[in-house]
Computed example of a mutant assay.
Amino acid sequence: MENKDYLKLLLDIVEKAQVKLLKEGKGTNEILGYNIKGDTTRGFDKTTEDYLMNEIRKIYKNITFLAEEAGVVEEGKDIYVIIDPCDGSSNFSRGIGVSAIAIAVAPSPFFEEVEIAVVKDIVSGKAYYAIRGGGAFLDGVRVIPSKIKELSEAIVGIDLDFPVKSDLDRVIPILKTAQKVRKIGSNSLELSYVSSGGYDAFVDVRSTLSAENFASARLIIEEAGGLISDDEGNSIVGEIDLTRKQNLVAAGNSVLHEKILELLQ
């Protein structure tokens, strides 16, 4: 099968997982323990991730999963699947309507090798997706990022949940300059907004993000024609490691991207 065939199957799996999560998730809200990052694992996180992994095993063989709750599950090295079963689980657990299922697929465990990406809004059902070299789409419609170049005219998503509150000082110049600021609590989804111009830019410099939060959205943004880098302007490349913490700056165009980077220095 070609990547477009795998993408179709993955979109079907993710849609079924979304329906299952909305139907059963609120009844599995208990905390089961902690994942590889030290974050809490709730019942709906684990049941959704287990479902996704079991269904993905039906279309791929010899998989290594890099999953938020299970960690690294090596069953082979033909394909690597990165999973965040509920990005925005705190939102979901409290009935706040912003969370997403995110999946990325690569032939080897490197960000630059990701070939298929899906980010599914759990509540609305909207799906962002991309195939390397094939563009990015939202529910079948090709997306393009914003052309706004002035921060004073831009809507910027900023994650403000800094573990050390004094580190908030770093983003104050952006807060003061941007036309509007948003913080909704699902990084993969907010990054995907950059691909379609919903956000003009997104910034997360908390040094807390890990690969499952952004591997899928990274491809979607790049295939749409936007930019995503670390907070020094370096490309997000290298081995996918669930324990590696990452800062991100994404923007619809290079001019806005550079202006945000300058404010962060």
Rank of each mutant, 00 (worst) to 15 (best):
D204W: 07
V118R: 01
R57H: 07
D241S: 10
K58G: 04
A178R: 11
K16F: 04
D167L: 06
L138V: 11
I103A: 11
T208Y: 02
E115T: 02
D121E: 00
E15G: 06
K147R: 10
G76T: 03
L175A: 06
R142W: 15
V164M: 14
D230T: 07
N187P: 15
K46R: 15
D230R: 10
N187D: 06
G38K: 10
I240E: 00
L256Q: 12
G125P: 14
E69L: 08
L11I: 10
I116A: 04
K23Y: 10
G238D: 04
G97T: 03
Y60Q: 06
P173G: 02
N3R: 06
R142L: 00
F137G: 04
K77H: 14
A250E: 04
G133S: 11
A104I: 02
S210I: 12
E30I: 14
G135E: 08
T243E: 11
L151E: 06
V141W: 12
N62W: 11
S93K: 15
I59K: 00
I174W: 02
G135V: 09
E150D: 14
E115G: 08
R206E: 15
Y128E: 09
K46D: 12
I155D: 01
A201V: 09
I101P: 08
L7A: 02
S229F: 07
L9G: 06
E150K: 14
D39F: 08
A154H: 03
N213H: 12
D84W: 12
K20Y: 15
C86G: 01
V237K: 11
G25W: 02
K16L: 12
D39V: 08
F111R: 05
F162T: 00
N91Q: 04
Y60I: 01
H257I: 14
T41A: 15
V237D: 07
I172P: 02
I82V: 14
D230K: 03
K245H: 13
F202M: 01
D45T: 08
E55R: 13
H257W: 09
D161W: 08
D230G: 07
A102V: 03
N91L: 05
N91F: 03
S186Q: 06
V72G: 01
L189V: 02
T64C: 11
G125Q: 06
V255E: 13
E113C: 01
Y128I: 12
E68F: 04
P173T: 07
S152P: 00
D169W: 13
G225L: 15
E222D: 12
G133H: 02
D45S: 10
Q265L: 07
E115C: 06
A178K: 02
R206Y: 09
G76W: 04
N29P: 01
A102L: 05
E69M: 13
I83P: 00
I155S: 14
I144Y: 15
Y6K: 09
G157I: 07
A224C: 07
G157W: 00
I236L: 15
K183N: 13
